[in-house]
Amino acid sequence: MRWISVIGAMAIRQLKRFFRARARALSTIMMPLMWLLLFGIGFSTAFRGVGFRSILGTSYISFLVPGIVCMTMFVSSFMSGISVIWDRQFGFLKEVLVAPAPRTFIILGRVLGDVTTSLIQALLIMVIGIALAHSLYVYGIPVALIYCLLLGMIGAGLGTMLALSINSIEAFQALVSFIILPLNFISNIFYPLNRMPTWFKIPALLNPITYATDALRGLLIHRCVIGLGIDSIVLIVVACVVIVLAAYMFRRTSIE
């Protein structure tokens, strides 16, 4: 049972750090909020009408909310990988590396803590989104959060892997915009999958965010394109692979 205590302690540590850095918490939630308020309201007022409604099956803002929730989840958990670099620079990594606890549990605890903080943000965006769009199915939220969790594991795992391979805050921040922006746009967050040309659809279907967004649309606006079954399988498999790889990399990390 010792592993529960290690995972739990590391998760609690990540949560405590998150809630102590309120400015940072606020800034990570600001970006998706801007998208939702400025872009979402702007677009939904510009593209009103029967044609749009028949393509999306709902108003643009209702269509956008599940996408922005997934965006919040992915970006926030991906960014949390940076704490590995902070820990290396501030020395705390050594404390962990010299401990007898299996490093897999350490990294699992970190990911779990980071995903929890991202879930809180995603839930907040979801609530704001529902208030704005008021045509979403609220009873879909609990299951939607499970898909968010899977997407968060993928994001946190990828972020951790990037952090472990570059070890520089500046490089991480520079690379994040290169990675996050295309990942958000080459997906179904902003536009429907079934209207994409094939050359765009293929990279979008290689992006895990697409499956999470599809699942959330299925649950919150009852508009699933890929199907919850495939969404679940893809997200679970990718999450497992990413976490295993991140744990492998963390096990091999040293201070050299």
Partner: peptide
């Protein structure tokens, strides 16, 4: 399991309290 280490540079979590740092260490060491 059998060693305690104080490295040359500080390896505490600066954003945790003294108690929390010790608590975290204790949990990790079971």
């Amino acid at each position: 399991k059998r060693i305690g280490v104080v490295f040359q540079d500080i390896t505490l979590d600066l954003n945790l309290t003294v108690y929390e740092n010790l608590w975290l260490h204790g949990k990790i060491y079971g």
